[in-house]
Simulated assay, not measured.
Amino acid sequence: MIKRDRQSRPPSEFSRRYGHLWFVVPGLVFFLGVFLLPLALAFGISMTNWSGLGNNVQFIGLANYAEILTHGPFYRAAFHNAVIFVVILIFQHTIGLYTAVLLNEKPRFMQFYRTVLFLPVIMSLVATGFVWTLMLSPNIGLINPVLKSTGLGFLAVQWLSQPGTALIAVIVVTAWNSLGWAIIIYLASLQAVPEELKQAAEMDGANSRQVFWRVVFPQLSPAFTALTVLTFIGTFRTFDVVYVLTGPLGAPNYATDVLGTLIYRTAFGTSSFSSGDIRFAFGIAMALLMMLAMAAICWMLIRQLRRREIET
């Protein structure tokens, strides 16, 4: 009888209001263990002059962060990331959207087209870099012979060896690799537009162009927001493709140097660096500062683009 009374006892006020938090605890503990604790440790290391080798560690406070603000290579690499971001963003919001619109018309072999266009996304970035390194090679590559055979031989150059074309090659490879994301995101958004809205506009006398720009395009605002933020994060995390195509030095003459390669060689060095050039704590400081800047910019992007969604 006592056991039955305990089972029928109503839950306490605390259990009703906060009982669901027990389901959050495992994920919160995991998050604290794999993210916040290493982040705190990295911040502590960034406030020292540790090279990553030996036990010679001296606390220097925020000196590393102050040095970064006047560090020319940091701004040069950030500029390259910004150029890649702007070009890729324009490419995705034009070519990616146009391709998604064509696929939304459900052409013949649509599933085949979707698979082929999305295939570069699921490829390893390292494998992508190696494939394009071979294709862009002036000796055994495919790009230059194709240009010569089509009468565009004046465009056949050593793509990865000239400062004027190396960054262009990196952008082309990055665009090829990320186009599938734009197509899938926009295609899913296009398929979610209610047919009733388009039919109502057509009944009011709107042609196909007006239906798209006045009815369909405003409905794509959430896709525009998501794709913009994801593109920003992806391009400012660029490392694999640049490392494989042009190496950790961002060759030639740092023309393709990005924040990822700069942080890598600062913290770990390269084969051409001596142990005295390795500054592990300074590299961590650059990584943390980049993460903080990216978080702030992402927050501003989301805030502004969400406001645009409400207005449209």
Rank of each mutant, 00 (worst) to 15 (best):
F268H: 14
T266I: 01
S272V: 14
R265F: 07
Y254C: 00
T256V: 05
L249R: 10
F273V: 06
V258Y: 04
S274P: 10
G269L: 09
F268A: 13
Y254E: 04
G276Q: 15
T261E: 00
D257V: 01
T266G: 05
F268W: 15
G250H: 09
P252D: 14
G260H: 14
G247H: 06
D277N: 12
F268D: 09
A267W: 07
F273P: 11
A251M: 09
G250I: 06
I263Q: 10
S272Q: 15
T246N: 10
G269Q: 12
S271H: 08
L262D: 01
L245P: 00
A251F: 03
F268N: 14
L245D: 02
V242Y: 01
L249M: 05
T256S: 13
G276C: 00
P252T: 12
S271W: 06
Y243L: 15
G260A: 12
L259K: 10
V242C: 01
D277E: 13
T266Y: 01
G247L: 08
G247I: 03
F273G: 12
F268R: 14
T256R: 06
V242G: 00
T256W: 08
V242W: 02
N253G: 04
Y264W: 09
A251G: 10
T270L: 10
T256P: 04
T261K: 10
V244N: 06
F273D: 15
T270A: 07
A267G: 12
T261V: 03
S274Q: 13
G276Y: 14
P252W: 13
A255I: 00
V244E: 10
T270G: 11
S272C: 03
T246C: 03
G260N: 13
L259C: 09
S271F: 06
G250R: 09
G260R: 14
S275P: 04
G250K: 10
A251N: 11
Y264M: 10
V242M: 02
S272K: 12
A251Q: 10
P248H: 08
L259V: 05
P248G: 07
I263L: 07
T256G: 08
R265Q: 10
A251D: 10
A255R: 01
G276K: 14
V244S: 07
G276R: 14
T261W: 08
G247F: 09
T270M: 07
L262N: 05
S271D: 02
I263H: 04
S275Q: 09
T266D: 09
F273Q: 13
S271G: 06
A255T: 02
V242A: 03
F273W: 13
P252C: 12
N253M: 08
T261P: 02
R265S: 08
S271A: 07
V244Y: 12
T246V: 04
D277G: 02
A255P: 03
Y264K: 02
D257S: 13
S274I: 00
S272R: 14
T266K: 01
A267M: 09
I263A: 03
V244A: 08
S275R: 04
Y243P: 03
D277M: 06
I263T: 02
F273N: 15
D277A: 13
G247Q: 07
P248D: 00
